[in-house]
Each structure stands twice: as structure tokens, then as C-alpha cells.
Design a binder for these strands. Structure first.
Lengths: 337, 337
DNA sequence: ATAGGTTGTCGAAGCGCTTCGACAGCGAAA
DNA sequence: TTTCGCTGTCGAAGCGCTTCGACAACCTAT
């Protein structure tokens, strides 16, 4: 393995000079710089990460804690993770992948050992066990998701409240009066991740203003669960003409069931999905949807973190504004006459 | 930050003794060990990762290179990644997440800098650019996937050849004579990842032995693409009664289309999917499927790697035997009489 | 010509750990 | 009793890098 010292010798300068060429923290004559860079090339030198971390107490690594369970939005998680990794590399950081499994211990371990300079947490619960630790430590962190108390924390998330409101507005505008929300699996609510509730709150309060009647039903993914849920909804509110679906794996079953029952989309009923664009465009009906901006969330989180690591950067809650894209699954409410 | 030296002082022993307690590389009296462990507890000591890496030239990190693109099997990739992270932690390793984006440079960077002790590559192409580098370096690595030339490499993958054969056998046994394979998107074939071809080869050669007629059509995911593909298939081979689907995002569209055309599953046509169990059980028909054992692949890869890091462990190709689970989407071929 | 400020380079210290060789203390074998 | 071999502990060296202070060499303003 090639070391700094060898590069220095090869270039006929001191080790510290090579270090300064690499870091740019002191000015170096063009001549020297060039000689050093050439030696680096020729010898194929790569700085040793451990030595660097030890000497500078900076690892240039960002830890990313992803949820262990895969009962929900896996593609979104993956997309966020990849966006985080890509953005981090642009800024010269690598990404350490932690699973939620270890819980708070992972936070202790990483901050304690200097393995990473900062961390990003996904799948944050309203009253997450890891938050007190993050508030104590002086290691920067960013949450993807919104806990109950955000004081002293930096968070990035889609504005789910506005998302719910947006869905209500769109359906109201089209003349729908009775709408149903197909929510996440009950387990998601029990886990208190918050985003499902926020969507619902936003949707309900806007619906109240607009005079919509709302029925909310959680729903496991899959065909069978969706069949039961749909039957219940139509039983209780036969006049329902608008659906908002927040559970990705309930979308296709819902469309199939509606088709089967002879309810045309969008002529008889309208459907809005809250899901990644890819899902919306690949469904059997091109879905009007509010996108979950996974890439943007990942990129944002990293950029906030880098800002903090560089000294500027405040604690702040960034809520990304939702965007509703109209496709082929929503239309005017059927006339009741 | 608490250091080894502070722990040593607190426990009234030398630094090296603390180190030996931690590593267990020399015998320590029960008494001393206990005092040291208590000091570690009380002070909340965590060894500094950088210092450790520098002194021991072991980072205790495994690099995992995931594909950047998300046009294919994202949930599988995620599941593998999580299995890798979980298994690695069990063995005391952390996982560094690299995207395929950097390509061979990432391999150079990681091996050169000692950032990681070993690496796992996913989404390996038949003639992957990264392979020569892996063969040169003495850093252990494991591939998930199978390149054309596996000499000097360790690989883990599902036995896709056997998977194809298994599908053919199951359909033949049920009396089907004309079968169609709905393959991955054309881009997947162009990329030469191999697994799709291997499936097809296995299926074709077994079909020949069993007297099945096979039609193969690649297919982008989604409803529209599937509609076109299905129409072409039924046009060319109206007698087709068996389908093997290897593209996850074509599964649900296919079922919807068949339903729409009045072809009952499994009475009129049988469908086998090659996909994770979760997809198979959540589809609108519970699908007979060959599972993609993502977790097992991830776990296996890590264990191979650890064995290599520990000195035992050979270069070896591990092909996981496929398992076909019969569910509700396959049945006897309709009688032709 | 001299004082003061820049610019470019170097040497040395030190980051926190692992590991090697040394060695004190002790019981077992001679 | 002496010798040998353990066992348990310590001190010191060193891993490869960053960074601080020092200091020539030069330029500019006096």
C-alpha cells in the first residue's frame, strides 16, 4: 500500500506538503502541486481512511439508518437510500448503512466510536427512542420524517398535511361529496410514524371546509384485504365516488375490484393515489397522484447535513410541498340527478 | 470522548491490558478483566474506529455495491441489502453503501484507502468491468449474481437455470403444451446481467425434453406494455395455456388482462411467477411462484466473506436451489378435446 | 536600505489504538 | 533448592495522516 511518505519522497517534498496539496488548506506553488499530483498518479496513491480519520477526527462518513421492516413503501426507502448515497458522494462523503434493528444502541455506537460524522434517520416515530440521544450529542443529524417534538432537530419530509388537503380539494373541485380514504395497514398507525395521521388530518380539516364527507379505513395491502375494506365502505356509504389511497399495495387491488363491480374509473368513481410516480404511471389506470418525492427527500437531507458539518446550517423543519398530478383516474363526479 | 488510556487509568491498569481485554488476544485474570469491564461501563467507552483501523489495518467494514438504477426488482435489492447489513452486524461488521454509479473507481477507492475490508457486489454483469480489479486485489469479495467467467471469484445466486427448468416441469406435469415466458424489460437483456438468459436457457432445454413449445417475449413493466405483449403472444400461439412471468411489474397487469379477456386463472390458463413471496401472495390471484430468496442470498454472501476474512473459505460458486410453491394460479391444462 | 508582510515549505508532535518483546511472579518438575 | 515454563501485565513503538509553529525567501512600502 502506497503511503503519503512515499509520495512525498517520490515528489521530493515533505509529507506535510503532500497533505496540503491534498487538502488545499495552505497555498502551494503551482510547480510543487503539479509534481505532487503527478507522483500521486504514478504511484496510484489513495489516502488511508483510518489514518485520516484518526488525525483529523473526521471520518467523512454519514450514517444512514433505514427501517428493518419491509411492510411499507420499500421502493421509496430504497430510492431515498440511493439518493442519499449519491448526494453524499458528490460532497465527498460515504454512507454507512445501519438497520433500525439496533435501535438507540446504534446511535450510541456510531457517535461514540467516531465511525461517522453525522447521521440520517429514516422511519422516525412520533416519540422515537433515538431522539434524546440525538439532542444530547453534538453530532449533526437529520430526520426523514416528523416526530411529535421537533425542537432541536432538523427534519425533512413531505408535507403530508398539505397532501391530504390537496386530495380533498381536487375531489371537491370535481364535484365529489362522499369520499373514502384507504389508509395504511393498521400496524403503521400503531407504530405512530405520524405521516398517515398527518395526511388524514389535513384531508379531514380541508374536507370540513369544503363540505365533503369522509370515511377513513386502514387497509392491509393485497387483494383480499382490499375486497373486505371496499365492501365495508360501499356498504356504509353507497354514495362514495372518490377514493384516496395511501397504501401502495392496495392500489392495484382497488382498481381491479372496482372494475369487477362495473364501476368505471374515472366515469363513476375517481381515485387519487399517494405514491411514487412510477407506481402511478404503471398501474392499470394511469393514476392521478400526489408523488412521494423520495429522491428530493434524500438529497435534501444530505445537503442539510453537509451544511451543518460545515458550520452553517440551522435546525429546521423542511416540509416539501406536495404536487398533485392529474392523470386518468379522476374526473367529474357523476351527476346525481 | 473517552479514550482507552482513560479507561486504563480508571481501572488502574495499562492501556495494553485494556486492549487485550477488549480483543481477547491474550489471557487476562478474571479479576483484572472485571475491573476493566466495569470501567468501560462506567465511563461509557467506545473504541475509536479510526484509531483501531489504523493500528490494526482492519476497518471492520464491508462495502456493499448496489445498482443505481431502479428499473428492476427494487424490493429484492432492498431485502438483500438489509440482510447483508443485519448479518454483517452479527459478525461485528458494519456496511458501507456504494452505488454502482462510480463503477470500477469505487472498487479502487475502497480497496486503496482501506475504507473496507471486503466487498459485496450486486447486479453483476456477464463481463463486468469491476471483475479484473477484484481478481488483482487481495481484498476478499463476493458477487451476488453470476458473471460469464467465475474463475478466481466467489459468487452467490439463485440457480436461475434450475428455476426455469422447474417452471417447465410444473407446467408439463399439469398437461400444458404451449407456454409463454414474459421476460424482463429489453434493457435488462441488453445489460447482460445473465440471470434472465439463464432462466430462459434452463426453461427451454427442459421444455425440449418434455415436449413443450416455448414462446419468449421480453416485456417492460406496466399495463400497456403487457397488453401489447399478451396480444402478440395469443396472436402467434392461440393455444398458449401456461405463462411464466419473470418481470415483477408485469404480473398484476397480466392477471388483469386475462381476467378482462374472460380467461380464468387457473381453469383456462396457468401462471407461474418468479418473484419474492410477498408479491406472490399479495397479487389478485395467489400465485404459484418460484421465490427469489433475497434474504438467504444476502446472508450467504456475508458468511462467505467472513469466512474469507478469517482465513478459511474458498473461491466458490454457490447456487441456491429454487423452490416452487404451488398456490392458486396453476392447474391442469384445459382438455383440448 | 530596512522593516514589515506574504507565500511556500518543512519538521515534529500527536490522534487512539494494537501488538511485540520483556519480565515479574508463581507453581511444577528436577 | 534450582530451573523451567506458564500466566498476566506493562512499556514502547508505530500505524499514516493532519496540523501547528517556525522560518527561509521574496515582495512591497517606507
Amino acid at each position: 500500500m502506497v503511503t503519503l511518505a512515499e509520495v512525498a519522497q517520490h515528489a521530493g517534498v515533505s509529507a506535510s506538503t503532500v497533505s496540503y496539496v491534498l487538502s488545499g488548506k495552505r497555498s502551494i506553488s503551482a510547480n510543487t502541486r503539479q509534481r505532487v499530483e503527478q507522483s500521486i498518479q504514478e504511484l496510484g496513491y489513495h489516502p488511508n481512511a483510518g489514518a485520516r480519520a484518526l488525525a483529523s477526527s473526521r471520518s467523512n462518513i454519514i450514517a444512514l439508518m433505514v427501517p428493518l421492516r419491509t411492510d411499507m413503501y420499500v421502493p421509496v426507502m430504497m430510492e431515498i437510500a440511493i439518493a442519499v448515497a449519491t448526494t453524499a458522494r458528490i460532497h465527498g462523503y460515504d454512507v454507512l448503512l445501519l438497520t433500525g434493528e439496533e435501535g438507540p444502541d446504534a446511535v450510541r455506537r456510531v457517535t461514540g466510536s467516531g465511525l461517522a460524522d453525522a447521521m440520517i434517520l429514516m422511519d422516525v416515530e412520533l416519540d422515537d427512542e433515538r431522539l434524546p440521544l440525538l439532542r444530547e450529542t453534538d453530532q449533526p443529524s437529520v430526520l426523514i420524517g416528523l416526530p411529535a417534538d421537533t425542537s432541536g432537530l432538523t427534519c425533512v419530509d413531505l408535507d403530508f398535511g398539505a397532501t391530504g388537503a390537496l386530495c380533498a380539494e381536487h375531489l371537491a373541485m370535481l364535484g365529489h361529496r362522499d369520499i373514502a380514504v384507504i389508509g395504511e395497514a393498521p400496524a403503521v398507525y400503531e407504530r405512530h410514524t405520524g405521516f398517515a395521521e398527518r395526511t388524514l388530518d389535513g384531508l379531514r380539516s380541508r374536507s370540513r371546509e369544503l363540505g365533503l364527507r369522509v370515511l377513513h379505513r386502514p387497509c392491509e395491502g393485497g387483494y383480499d384485504a382490499m375486497a373486505v375494506t371496499l365492501a365495508r365502505i360501499l356498504d356504509e356509504r353507497p354514495a362514495t365516488t372518490g377514493f384516496v389511497v395511501q397504501n401502495e399495495s392496495a392500489v392495484e387491488p382497488l382498481l381491479a375490484l372496482l372494475r369487477q363491480q362495473g364501476r368505471a374509473v374515472p366515469e363513476d368513481v375517481s381515485v387519487i393515489a399517494i405514491c411514487p410516480d412510477q407506481v402511478a404511471t404503471q398501474a392499470s389506470v394511469r393514476l392521478t397522484s400526489v408523488a412521494i418525492p423520495a429522491q428530493e427527500m434524500g438529497r435534501h437531507a444530505v445537503e442539510q447535513l453537509i451544511a451543518k458539518l460545515d458550520g452553517h446550517g440551522e435546525d429546521e423543519v423542511v416540509l416539501i410541498a406536495p404536487e398533485l398530478t392529474v392523470r386518468a383516474s379522476t374526473g367529474p363526479a357523476p351527476s346525481t340527478s
